[in-house]
Each structure stands twice: as C-alpha cells, then as structure tokens.
Simulated scan of single mutants.
Amino acid sequence: MRNTVSKFLDYLKTEKGSSPNTIASYKRDVNNLINYIESNSLTVGKITNTNLNSYLIYLEKMGKAPSTISRNVASMHCYFRYLYKNNIIEQDPSSNLISPKIEKKLPEVLTMEEVDILLSQPNDDDCKGIRDKAMLEVLYATGIRVSELINLKKDDVSINLGYIKCRDNKKKERAIPIGQVSKDALVKYLKSARDIMIEDPNEDFLFVSCLGHKMSRQGFWKIVKSYANKAGIYKKITPHILRHSFATHLVENGADLRSVQEMLGHSDISTTQIYARMSNNRLKEVYTKAHPRA
C-alpha cells in the first residue's frame, strides 16, 4: 500500500499540476490514513466506505477541526479515485463520503464610529495626506478590492456622474456609485496633489506612491495600519476590512443583497449573504441589550 503513495504524489505533480502545498497536504493525509488502516490490519483492496467513515469519526474524536476533516475527505477522494482508475482497487470506497459542514467564520468589521475615526486621520494639508484621505474614502464608499483600488486609472473616475469603473482579476468591469464625501476627497486629490506627486506626466494610474509611481498593495496596507494605530483601533486591521465594513453597513441600513452583490462584484449571491447574517447578529445583540424581557 505504501508504494502507491509515491506514484499517487507523482500523478498529482505531473498530471494534475497540483501546487507543492496541496501535494504536501495530500501526502500527510494519505500517510495518516494508511497508518490507521494498517493498525486495524486492513489492506488497500479490503477498505470499505464504513472503514473510511470510522476513520473520520476517529479524526473527530482526536479533536480535528471540521476544516481539517473536510480536507482529509478531499484527499481520500483523490487518492482512491486514482487507485480505481489505475485498476489497483476494484471499487472506490470513498465515493459516498460526505465532508462535514464548515461554518463560515464571520469577517471582522469596523463599526460606523470606527470608520469615521479612521477616515478622519489623514492630514489633508499635504499631498500624502490628501491622497491617503481619497484612497480610504473611495475604498469605504465603494467596497472595491485593494487590487481594484490600486489599479484604478484616472479615466475610471467620473466625478460628474458620481461613479467609478473598476475591473476584477477576470477583467470583468462594473460601475459603482460614490457619495459626496468621497467625491470631494477625489476632487481635492486630483486638483491639489496628484499632479505634484506623479513623476511621469503620462502616468494613467489614479493613485501613486510618494515616488510618483503606481501604489503597491503592501504600501497601501502600511498606510491603513498606520492610521488604525493613530486612531487607537486595535482590531486586526487590513484594507479588506473596509470592504467588509462597507457591505455590512449597507445591509444594516436596508440595502438589498442583489445590489450589494453587484457592487462587490460577487458572482454568487451566497457569498454576499454572509453580510445579512452579520446584520441579523447585530440586530439580535441590540435587541438582547435593549429589550426589558430579552
């Protein structure tokens, strides 16, 4: 049985093109499974669906997280499917295995008060502060991804119409409205700071670094972190937290999920529904604290 593992790993690498991390995970999972099987005096051709379910129960009793057990199920599916296709076993015992349901962890968000404090930190008396203010305001006003923010071009902004255009990593374009506060911050940046900061007059990226080039993800992450520290917000702050906060606050204030889905650029509304759960949890907290008979 051990000799099938190395062949299976070669198959993952050469035929499936799996990443080194995936191969390492599958190797660990399959070897652990074989240890369990051998300790129960079984052979590869005698393994049944019941044996594999017993192993999953064993993992659960060992305190393994549902995500770990789910990954083990994926490893077993792939391994036994390989054995079956190569006529090493007569039937696939993993075919009816079901992964445990994994509860999605709710993302961290800022309160509306924390957002106000964070966005008030940049000093808009200098070019850097004006740029930082505009970037933070646009990020919270639109909920776009950081990669989309730093890839915005100057022509993607329509101040008069109150929209920005952005493209996701699949080059799919969407238009998102911006409010008056973010429009004012953008106008100030475009009129008072950008032309001073750019090195090349033909630079078309909207936001540039202090060296006059396109802003990097890491550079913007440092900007957000520094202002969070300055504001005294000690949550685990990342630029993505403003995207989550944008969506959560919209839903809390009555926005419909379809509109939020479109603005976020989610292909599946089930991804957007997590913000409805967060809003419901928030309402429950408010009710519990405020209702005399809660």
Rank of each mutant, 00 (worst) to 15 (best):
G179W: 04
K236E: 13
L211Y: 10
S216G: 10
A193E: 05
K172C: 08
R174Y: 01
I241R: 10
I233S: 02
Y234L: 06
I178C: 05
R243I: 04
Y189E: 01
G212A: 06
K165T: 12
N202D: 15
Y234D: 09
S209Y: 07
K235E: 05
I233C: 03
K191S: 15
E203V: 06
L161G: 02
A185D: 11
F246I: 02
S245M: 13
G212S: 05
A175S: 07
T238E: 02
I198K: 08
P239T: 06
I178S: 04
A228F: 03
R217G: 00
G162I: 14
K236V: 11
K171S: 13
F246A: 01
C210Q: 10
K171P: 00
N202T: 15
P201W: 09
K235Y: 05
G219A: 04
D195P: 03
I198A: 10
N202G: 11
I241F: 13
L206F: 10
I223F: 03
K236N: 14
A185G: 11
A228S: 08
K235Q: 06
Q180H: 14
K171N: 14
L186A: 09
N202K: 15
I176A: 05
R217P: 00
K191Y: 05
I159M: 13
L206K: 01
Y227G: 11
R243Y: 04
Y189S: 01
N229I: 02
A228E: 03
N169L: 09
R174Q: 02
I223R: 01
I159S: 10
V181L: 09
A193N: 10
I164L: 12
L161F: 07
Q180I: 15
F207D: 08
E199A: 12
D184C: 03
C166Y: 00
A231C: 07
C210S: 09
K183F: 07
H213W: 01
D156C: 15
I164A: 13
G219Y: 04
F220G: 02
S209E: 08
D204H: 15
I223Y: 03
Y189D: 01
N202R: 15
H240R: 06
K165R: 14
L242Y: 03
F246E: 01
I164K: 12
K171A: 08
A175V: 10
A175R: 08
V157L: 15
P201R: 12
L190T: 08
F207P: 07
P201I: 13
K230P: 00
K188M: 11
K225I: 00
N229S: 02
S192C: 15
E199G: 04
P177T: 02
D155Q: 13
K172M: 12
D200T: 11
K236C: 06
L206A: 04
P239S: 07
Q218H: 03
S158C: 10
W221V: 00
S192A: 14
P201S: 14
A228C: 05
